[in-house]
């Protein structure tokens, strides 16, 4: 992506800082093309999710499989939104890691505890309340 490649020319003014907030008309054209491409991808994934949600019983598919498909598609959608629309894919590596690593570590930690310590519910599985 052109607009993220900032020119790193030497700057001799001590009081001046720089970062990428501009791009040219030609780069803009490419960026817009990319934005609409991602829009169609997101729309396609959402359409698949909704159709699966309505018709999965008629299609004779197992609920466990459908559930995992939904989660995979959702994470895929999240990836496209964060990497392209929130522009994280084009940020410097250090910034990417500072954002992604703490979140993923904590989310996996939470999922681990819900899945392992959630077995408490088996003890009272036969109670309706």
């Amino acid at each position: 992506m052109g607009h993220s490649e900032h020119t790193s020319h030497d700057n001799h003014h001590q009081e001046v800082y720089e970062y990428a907030v501009h791009h040219s008309e030609e780069e803009g054209k490419k960026v817009r093309k990319r934005i609409w491409l991602i829009f169609w991808v997101l729309l396609f994934i959402t359409t698949v999710e909704v159709l699966l949600g309505i018709f999965w019983k008629e299609m004779g598919l197992a609920w466990g499989f459908i559930k995992m498909t939904f989660i995979v598609l959702t994470v895929l959608k999240a990836f496209y939104i964060v990497s392209e629309y929130m522009h994280l894919k084009h940020e410097v590596t250090f910034l990417k890691n500072v954002i992604i690593v703490p979140f993923v570590v904590y989310a996996l930690y939470l999922a681990y505890h819900v899945l392992t310590e959630g077995v408490y519910s088996d003890m009272i599985a036969n109670w309706l309340y």
């Binding site: 607009h3 490649e5 900032h6 020119t7 790193s8 700057n11 003014h13 001590q14 009081e15 001046v16 800082y17 720089e18 970062y19 990428a20 907030v21 501009h22 791009h23 040219s24 940020e91 410097v92 250090f94 910034l95 500072v98």
Partner: peptide
């Protein structure tokens, strides 16, 4: 494709914002 910032709007770091 870069813009100049005053010291108050960017982080310290050799005239370049460390996270760009």
């Amino acid at each position: 494709s870069s813009v100049s910032l005053d010291k108050n709007s960017a982080w310290e770091g050799n005239n370049k914002s460390p996270f760009n």
